[in-house]
Design a protein around this nucleic acid. Structure first.
Lengths: 231, 231
DNA sequence: ACTTCTATCTATAACCA
DNA sequence: TTGGTTATAGATAGAAG
């Protein structure tokens, strides 16, 4: 489906290989998203580029699909077998993962991160201001990025696009990245914030789809967390 | 790409939905396979049909790709990719060690609760809405209670009373306890929220000083946290 | 690595088996 | 559920930023 037909075999030119990967990955993720919407299916795609960088698509989420996959396939004498296109091995790897996941669940008795907030630290107005600012900063950035999420992420129950989000966005949060929250950044770390933040968002804005990759998302959130004020 | 264009939205006809899933799954797996061959990429596709049956594609194998994904995504975000096999293996071991160290550090030494947020969980609009709602709820209640703090808390640096707080309070949060944020509370737990919340605040309002004790504060925050939406 | 621009090649919606 | 057939919509190879 290009200007000329090519054989499906290793592309020897490394640059061409990388370009082709980028294009086909994009197409593949789009097709996966389309199928999820059309058929109310759940799927995950994990792709490692020739350079070794991971890219993922997931509906409802990569992790939930992987979890569903692992859970079902690890069951004791599974009732329904997996319908495999390729051969797959129930190897020691899976059992290792099972053990890891169980341990994580046991260690994390709390379901939500906010259950781990140490309330005793917030005993003065300064600390509370710090908390409020942190929450506002986080919230502001979360809202900005909700717009950048792929629209198909919202179709879990066949609902309309981005339910409730437009309402939330009316609360003083600009949809363009205009750094109106710069006042939260203090002297020492100001450079880090809007530098990284804006550049990643900007690169995403050049895309037709206007959404962020999983890696971009994670990086942005980590950047934000670095900037939250101290208690 | 059929005889006529169709909108990418849920197919209401269940039979058509299933047929479409079958065809598109086949096409998707073929495209994944082509990309793997052309680009020497590694990828896995996991798809649950509308009927709930799992179908997978994997090159080299579903499990190896999942393993690589899980291992890699837990580690710190490292910038440079190594290209030859040997150094990649080495860096992987290093990353594993770094991961352990980082987790230990997070468990023991993190100063702020937001450093413990697991960002990888927020990869869909539903989860983000959940996060946003939680943040708004928390923020709203923090603001309400700032008013209840002992006024002397604000004079740590000889500053005026409650600096910055009045500004924050203008942002749609009433200073009287009028439950205007009830819409954040969902069906199952609505009773608990304003129940506990209001009663403790009310008891504090009967006092001349109009401020909450540390215990009251902590109890209120814990009550709120119970109400935050699930991820 | 990520676009944009065609000219082509592929996937697939509808239909029927 | 699967497998053709055919007309068309979509994806993409090549080239150039």
């Amino acid at each position: 489906m290009g200007k000329r037909k090519i054989a499906i075999e290793k592309l020897e030119n490394p640059n061409k290989r990388q370009v082709t990967f980028s294009k086909r990955r994009k197409g593949l993720f789009k097709k996966a998203a389309d199928a999820c919407l059309l058929c109310e299916a759940e799927m995950a795609v994990i792709a490692f580029s020739p350079a070794g960088k991971p890219y993922t698509f997931g509906h409802t989420s990569v992790d939930s699909v992987i979890d569903r996959y692992l859970t079902r396939s690890m069951g004791p004498i599974s009732g329904d077998a997996h319908h495999d296109e390729q051969s797959r091995l129930l190897s020691r790897e899976i059992k290792d993962l099972e053990r890891e996941l169980k341990q994580q669940r046991e260690n994390n008795n709390s379901r939500y991160w906010w259950e781990q907030i140490d309330m005793e630290k917030y005993d003065s107005v300064e600390k509370l201001e710090s908390l409020v600012e942190g929450l506002e900063k986080l919230r502001s950035n979360v809202l900005k990025r909700v717009e950048k999420l792929p629209p198909w992420s919202t179709f879990v129950n066949g609902e309309t696009t981005k339910p409730a989000v437009p309402l939330l966005l009316t609360d003083g949060v600009s949809s363009t990245h205009t750094h109106e929250d710069q006042d939260y950044v203090d002297d020492q770390e100001a450079v880090v914030d809007d530098g990284v933040d804006a550049s990643v968002i900007a690169s995403a804005e050049n895309e037709d789809d206007h959404w962020l990759s999983d890696e971009d998302w994670e990086q942005l959130m980590r950047d934000d967390i670095e900037l939250l004020p101290a208690v």
